[in-house]
Computed example of a mutant assay.
Amino acid sequence: MTNASTVRDPLLGAWATLGEPRLTTELARSGVGWVALDLQHGHFDDRSLRDALGRRAADTAPMLVRVAANDAALIGRALDAGADGVVVPLVNGVADAEAAVAASHYPPRGARSWGPLPGSRAVHGPGSDDAPHAVPLCAVMIETMAALEAVEAIAAVPGVDMIFVGPFDLSLALGLDVDELLSSTEDDAPLRRITRTCRQAGILAGAYAGSSGRAALLAAAGFDWIAAATDTGLLALGVQALRAQARTGRPDQSDQDAFSAGNASS
């Protein structure tokens, strides 16, 4: 995990949707900064989540789980399976954020019950809340007008480690095109407000991009953790790169994948 105070360039990650444990494990070993397993809008279920988390080695990239809802049972089960943290959707205010934090941590910090799944890799246990980095990482999603209006209060909730933006849902809520939301550079623009708030609160700012172009815009807006591509998108990029090499005998720089194209300098 990365402490907010040491972030320089975005930590680029992959968003896993296919629900295929072996593919997800390979993503985590591929050199990406982190991997998110999507239980809300992806094909993961309880079994494939356990399989994906159980297959990884200790030195693979951090693996977060986007749970289907801000529900203590769902959050606890994802962490029991060995996730390094959770991404909690539809956090609209302080009470929602406090509930997500409580579900993520054991007493006295939270209300999570002890019960790792048999065979899961123990990522954190009682007492691990004193680690130098967030264990587990609790990211709460800003996706609505209500959440945006309350972002400063949400970021101030003890135990919130990251504000994570779902730009497609947020743009719908604000009545904007998603690319209009991403490209706005005014000081009071929604994304600039969120990243500024995170810096002031000393926490991370994360977001879903899904493409190298959107990743570059999010990096320019100051986000620390960016989901630069999906597992399906990376498969397509790999095929494009293979075709380019077959045509020319050397890699085509125009087909570079999202993890090189999404740097802050791009």
Rank of each mutant, 00 (worst) to 15 (best):
A201N: 10
D38Y: 07
R50V: 05
E26D: 13
V35A: 10
F44S: 05
L217M: 12
L218I: 02
D161Q: 09
R250E: 12
L11M: 14
W34D: 02
D71T: 00
F44M: 05
G125H: 05
G175R: 07
E143H: 06
A220T: 09
D252W: 03
V135S: 10
L242K: 04
A95G: 00
A244L: 06
H41Y: 10
G238E: 07
A83L: 03
A173C: 09
A146W: 02
A103L: 00
V86L: 04
V140Q: 01
L176P: 12
P89Q: 03
A111Y: 02
L23Y: 13
V123Y: 08
L23A: 15
D255L: 07
Q240P: 01
D45N: 15
R47M: 08
C198P: 13
P118R: 06
G54Q: 12
R247S: 11
S211H: 07
V160C: 02
P158F: 05
W15C: 01
G206A: 11
S254V: 09
W15V: 01
A78T: 04
L137Y: 06
D187P: 11
T230M: 11
A111I: 09
S183A: 15
L137I: 11
G262E: 07
D9K: 15
D51G: 03
L148Q: 11
T24Q: 12
R121F: 05
A236Y: 10
S260H: 10
T17I: 15
R112D: 00
L170N: 14
N263R: 04
T24C: 15
E26G: 12
A221N: 13
R121Y: 04
M1V: 14
L12S: 09
N263D: 00
L39F: 01
A99D: 00
P251M: 05
R112F: 01
E186G: 14
D257Y: 05
R196P: 02
N92T: 08
I203G: 05
T24H: 15
L23H: 14
R29M: 15
L148V: 06
V86I: 13
A246W: 09
A261T: 01
L174G: 13
G210R: 03
Y106S: 00
L182K: 07
Y106F: 10
R47S: 07
A221R: 15
L37S: 11
D84H: 14
L74C: 00
G175P: 13
L237F: 06
A139S: 15
P167D: 14
A81N: 07
V35H: 12
L237S: 13
H133V: 15
G202I: 11
G93Y: 02
T248K: 04
D188S: 14
D71L: 02
Y106N: 01
D45A: 08
G210L: 06
R66I: 07
L234G: 07
G222Y: 05
R66P: 04
G159N: 11
P107C: 02
T197I: 09
L37T: 13
R50N: 06
L137M: 13
V178P: 09
A216V: 06
Q253S: 09
A229T: 11
R121H: 08
T232I: 15
D46E: 12
A229K: 09
Y208P: 01
G85R: 05
A134R: 12
L235F: 13
L191C: 10
A4Q: 03
A102E: 00
A102M: 00
L53A: 06
E20L: 15
A229C: 13
A261N: 00
D169S: 10
R109I: 12
